[in-house]
Amino acid sequence: MVMISLKRAPPPHFITLRDLTGPQIGSLVQSALQFKHMCKVEGKTAHPDLPLKGQTLAIMFSKRSTRTRVATETAMAYLGGQGLFLSSQDIQLGVNESLRDTSQVVSSMCAGIMARVGAHREIEELAHYSSVPVINALSDTFHPTQILADLMTMHEVAVAERCPPGTLPHEVNFRDTLQGQRVAWVGDANNIVWEMMMAFPKLGVDLAVATPKGYDTPAVLRETAAGFAREHRTQVAYTQHPEEAIRDSHFIVTDTWVSMGQEAEKTKRLQDFKGYQITHDLINRSQPHKDWKFMHCLPRKQEEVDDAVFYSPQSLVFPEAENRKWTILAVLNALLVNKRY
């Protein structure tokens, strides 16, 4: 008697860049560069094959979003599918219905789930019970789609500065441009810098993290990043002095000091982060690389970075924001079309 198992292999999920190898991350960025070129240079405003025609992506967000929502819906449309936006007011995400039940129900009707949650355990639980790929659009620990966009932006800058005029970013190997780059993080220890720690060391990028006393990165994440750094001969350093982090850096990055849910701590945080605002004065006395650039995931507040830097020629914030679309498009194509990274 022949026994046939109906149990399927678990679908590929995109939870954090910690789980991907350097080549896998590079493959996603290279795909994003190709999609951007196809659309903006070749004029292909939709994928010629519309591989996701008739398919729906559930976009379940328990927190507000601008860039991630717009990027996800337009990326899904590019592939021929549609996004179904479900806010916390639309569905009972972990309120009157368990995450397990929500995951099983939604994944039975959709091709994938893009979820923006609070606690990281929520995205892990959704993925555990889902029969379709789950993509982390943000949790309180990791934000992988943002860091993919940062890496893509860094690559484009490096191509423009180092390669012969007319060289197109998608024609240059992504990993070749990042070797030896140094990134300075100045600000709160949050999901953005923690995701950087999971990715940058594997790609030849050194990272210097400046946070005030009492805002340290959890030891388990430091240990993981240190392991990646040892394996790939890169550096991840920590300091309480912004000047030390910025020195010799090619990219200076910050983010909000008061994340959603931390509003009650605002007065204390503004005092604790005194001296961390990114200004030309701070940058000049810190002696970064001569061709330094500034990045921010947005939305931005004045206390984190002043207008002179935010709107300066060195600022990459708007190309960085646009690249959210192309990297999310690459992730959707990898998981929903190719079924792999």
Rank of each mutant, 00 (worst) to 15 (best):
Q235W: 02
T279F: 12
V317C: 13
S62H: 10
V317H: 03
R116P: 08
V253Y: 14
V209W: 01
I25M: 14
H280I: 00
K63M: 09
P212L: 02
R18W: 10
G118Q: 08
Y341C: 15
G204A: 01
Q302I: 10
V309S: 02
E322Q: 13
L6C: 10
S130A: 15
S65P: 02
R222I: 11
A229S: 08
K268L: 12
P242F: 00
R18S: 13
A149P: 04
R116Y: 08
T211C: 13
A75D: 01
V317Y: 03
T66Q: 07
L86Y: 06
P164I: 03
G275C: 07
R233I: 02
E195Y: 13
G180K: 07
E125L: 10
A245P: 08
G22N: 06
M152S: 05
W185A: 02
M152N: 01
E320V: 06
D216Q: 11
E244M: 07
S131K: 14
V105F: 11
T254C: 07
I59L: 15
V159E: 05
L148Q: 00
E125R: 08
Y311W: 12
W292K: 05
A75W: 00
V95D: 15
S286P: 09
S139M: 03
F228K: 01
K274S: 14
A334M: 08
H155V: 07
L221M: 14
H296T: 09
V70G: 00
P169M: 03
A225Q: 00
L57D: 02
F310V: 08
V29E: 06
A77E: 11
A58T: 05
M76H: 00
M260D: 00
L178A: 01
R162N: 13
M198A: 15
Y311N: 13
D140F: 09
K339Q: 14
G180E: 01
